[in-house]
Design a protein around this nucleic acid. Structure first.
Lengths: 141, 141
DNA sequence: CAGTATCCGGTGCGATACTG
DNA sequence: CAGTATCGCACCGGATACTG
């Protein structure tokens, strides 16, 4: 049975996929730029970009800078941007529970006020929900 | 360079790890119970439980039900419970962007009001932050 | 600059069967 | 009930070199 989590993991759970999304979210758009930042092997990176594109998480576009030859660039689609809460949740968890040897990848800030942004559980009633003592998990019927 | 995201992915990015956490969050505690619910091969499941335990995400305990022999059970630690926003983010993303063929794994509800709970970006100023147009991502200095 | 083409080693993972 | 023990394949991923 394919569940949401297992399907989503199949798309972005591989080793480099989310790191590619992270780079794209930072505004890096070109192959070599992403390759250098992540250290992913070129063949693997090409494959991940293909899969992310096929999944509608990023889109590719060819453009022509004046005076040089055409280039290709990758940008996140809306579906890709919607992965940012997931990345933020990874970072938040890592910061709290991994040793200080791990480098903080990325910092999310609120455009309006510049404040630090984290991923939180929020109820439709508007309240923040602590996973420790205010949350109920149930199987979907 | 080890970043928070890549380290966290190394711990819980494998195929069955987050599914095991999901089962534990539903209150399933025993090996066979988790095995049946996920369908993971027994050897793989044993390894994942070992790794999750070593990482401090779950803990194992032996207890003695009256009248039967001793059993072992697994429970999420606080670090494991702190993964639930991550799971919620997966579910939210999948529900929005995967086809209707995928089954919703799990439903999170607010203990106080019973309302539906989702993972959202929240600024320290208290406002919800849309990833589409209110978020700035920057590399950490 | 943006990939492909090979080659190859490690291992994740599935299936099955066996123990305490 | 809770795992180990084996086996084998597919595939991920690293290195290197080559093309448009």
């Amino acid at each position: 049975m394919q569940t949401l989590i297992s399907e989503a993991l199949a798309l972005v759970g591989e080793r480099w996929s989310l790191l590619v999304v992270r780079e794209l979210s930072l505004g890096r758009r070109r192959f070599d730029e992403i390759q250098a930042a992540t250290g992913a092997p070129r063949a693997v990176l090409a494959d991940r970009l293909r899969r992310l594109t096929a999944a509608g998480i990023c889109a590719t576009r060819t453009y022509q800078p004046p005076g040089s030859r055409s280039r290709r660039e990758y940008v996140l689609t809306d579906a890709g941007v919607d992965l940012l809460p997931l990345l933020a949740a990874f970072v938040d968890w890592g910061e709290r529970h991994l040793g200080p040897d791990a480098v903080r990848d990325i910092e999310y800030r609120h455009l309006a006020c510049g404040g630090h942004v984290t991923a939180q559980l929020v109820c439709e009633c508007g309240q923040l929900v602590s996973p420790r003592d205010q949350l109920v998990a149930q199987i979907n019927p």
